[in-house]
């Protein structure tokens, strides 16, 4: 849901070996930040990064990222009819779309999208946790849900405020929550394999969990390479994020299909 916003913008905004600066911000004026005007950023993109994006240009990447809009529009059209238990996922599609739009606007003006992206990761983790709860994942262990509900914001604060700043991209938090989401999705899929009927491919939770497993597994691995080794090799990370962009497109289309197949609310019969 957010790969596009992370990939290209992440790459543009993160410290480059030659410049070795923090992400450029125009308005926040944080001490120690080096200001880059939008033009400079665009020049930087043209001169230094275009060779690495020979196969995938900025527009295509942005278009892939915005594919979440398909799901968001379907969610908006069907909101009154879809069952309440999918509410967190609907909010997640709109939040994802807002994040993509904010990222594109910020980066095209030469600002970093780190702060919005970091906030989005927190919202995403909590919304998916809530969605798992609505699907009954924590029915047997409600305390574990409360524990995760406290742990996720706490770990986010630790990285975004204590270890780094809000204006630097989080990595450890992404690894942590992506890993948790993959676990939750795998468990939900296992339960569906045994308890649901044969037409699993038409079950929205099955599709959504498949999307979670595909996207967040790749995201976890990408972040690990980012933290421990990828940062030094531009070619490698560009290739990795290219793949992530395609995965993002695929997963967004799966989400859109799931949103189309979400069951409608049961009509209540008014009692006289």
């Amino acid at each position: 849901m957010n790969a596009g916003s992370q990939s290209l913008y992440y790459y543009l905004s993160n410290p480059l070996p030659v410049l070795s600066v923090k992400a450029p911000f125009a308005s926040f004026g944080r001490p120690g930040m080096i200001y880059y005007a939008g033009t400079e950023m665009r020049n930087l993109f043209k001169e230094r990064l275009i060779p690495y994006f020979a196969r995938m240009n900025f527009d295509l990447n942005a278009a892939f990222s915005l594919s979440i809009a398909i799901g968001a529009v379907i969610a908006l059209v069907r909101i009154r009819r879809i069952e309440d238990r999918y509410a967190p996922f609907l909010v997640l599609t709109w939040t994802g779309l807002l994040n993509e739009i904010a990222s594109i606007v910020l980066v095209s003006r030469g600002y970093s999208n780190a702060a919005t992206y970091n906030l989005y990761t927190l919202a995403e983790s909590l919304l998916i946790l809530w969605q798992f709860k609505r699907w009954g994942l924590f029915q047997r262990v409600p305390r574990f849900y409360t524990f995760l509900l406290l742990l996720l914001p706490l770990s986010w604060c630790c990285e975004s405020i204590v270890y780094r700043t809000l204006f630097q991209f989080n990595s450890y938090f992404i690894i942590f929550y992506s890993f948790l989401i993959v676990m939750g999705a795998i468990y939900t899929l296992s339960e569906m394999l045994f308890y649901e009927g044969p037409a699993l491919w038409r079950q929205p939770p099955f599709l959504i969990c498949m999307g979670f497993v595909i996207y967040f597994t790749y995201s976890t691995l990408t972040e690990v390479f980012w933290v421990f080794g990828l940062a030094h090799s531009k070619t490698f990370r560009v290739r990795i994020y290219e793949v992530l962009a395609y995965i993002n497109l695929l997963v967004n289309l799966i989400y859109a299909t799931a949103l189309l197949w979400m069951p409608t609310k049961l009509r209540s019969i008014p009692l006289s």
Binding site: I175, F179, V182, M183, I186, T217, T220, L221, V224, F225, V227, F228, G229, L230, H232
Partner: peptide, 16 residues
């Protein structure tokens, strides 16, 4: 650092 990344990625994948 590359070897560390590969090791940690393998551990995470193994855990999954």
């Amino acid at each position: 650092s590359i070897y560390t990344a590969v090791l940690i990625a393998s551990l995470l994948l193994g855990a999954i």
